[in-house]
Amino acid sequence: MHVQGHIFVVTGGASGLGQQVTKSIIEQGGHVIIMDINSTGANEMVESFGSDKAYSSGSVDVTSEEQVKDAIQNGLCHFKNNNEELFLVGAVICSGIVWPPQSIEGYGPNNQLTSYSQFKHVVTINLLGSYNVAQQVAQVIMNNKPLNQDGERGIIITTSSMLGLDGTLVGYGTSKAGVAGMTLPLARELSNFGIRVMSIAPGPFDTPLARAIPGVEAPVSLFPKRYGQPSEFSDLVLHIINNSMLNGSVIRLDGALRG
């Protein structure tokens, strides 16, 4: 499967890893429906690349079935008004949070432990939000004509985390473990429709998320001894899209760092 001439949904597409994925897909000749809670950033991306390459319907909450559905349908109408041959073939799900807002309190000494409300908030966005987008994109893709002799129709790529695989941070780690855990079951469920499902579990990358807490910095990789670059993440996304034998797996992208 190739990027050129196809439409992809990218969540979290206005910043960090998602922003770089959006850029890379467009540079490869693809078109992107940007879903991001940050409508200003999303609109700036559209202005930068042009409305023939990128589209945003405004602020999109990935946990809202209605908002995700509207963003997909509005994006498809937007691109198909310009080119009837364009089809949605994939989603790259990069949206997520590490910490709940300060307004949701923890419990225990100094409220430093993870409360149920905090846990629920993070899991809802990172896990349920990822599945919401994956399911709604898959629902569109399964009606595509096959793209190649394998009968491939599209792909879903989620973003897990090394912290989800290594058991670090109760809310975030559990949510990302869930994202990793749904990869193979979802790949099996969608296989009869020619839809692949993959997940990437990155370590710390040079994005605002790596510095989510003032004064606290994430460790660098064992080698290379630095943060990952967003372009290295998007390079892997492009390779997964192009390589049809990659399916049902989680790929660590962490320079041998473990949580």
Rank of each mutant, 00 (worst) to 15 (best):
A134H: 03
Q149D: 14
L113N: 11
S160Y: 08
F87D: 07
S115K: 05
T168F: 14
G96P: 08
R153Y: 05
A134N: 02
R153F: 01
D166F: 09
E84V: 09
I156G: 01
A138M: 07
H121L: 09
Q149A: 14
Y172R: 08
M142G: 01
L113I: 10
A91T: 00
E152K: 11
H121M: 05
V140C: 03
G106S: 01
N111L: 14
Q149P: 00
G96L: 07
T114R: 02
N144G: 08
G167H: 08
K145N: 12
S130A: 14
K120N: 13
S103R: 13
R153N: 07
L88T: 04
S130D: 03
M142S: 11
Y131C: 05
M162Y: 04
F119D: 05
Q112L: 14
K120S: 14
N111Q: 13
L147R: 11
S130K: 01
S130R: 03
A138E: 04
V122I: 15
S117Q: 15
V122T: 15
R153P: 03
E84K: 12
P101K: 09
G129M: 10
E84I: 09
S115V: 09
N143E: 13
T124F: 02
L169F: 14
T168D: 07
I93Q: 04
N132R: 00
L128H: 14
I97H: 04
L169E: 06
S160V: 06
P100A: 15
Q135F: 07
Q135D: 09
Q149W: 05
L128K: 11
A134Q: 01
K145F: 10
V98M: 11
E152I: 12
S117I: 07
Q112E: 14
F87I: 10
G96A: 07
V140Q: 11
E105S: 13
Q112M: 15
V122P: 06
D150T: 12
Y116H: 15
P146M: 11
L163A: 04
T114F: 06
Q135W: 06
V140W: 02
Q135H: 13
N143K: 15
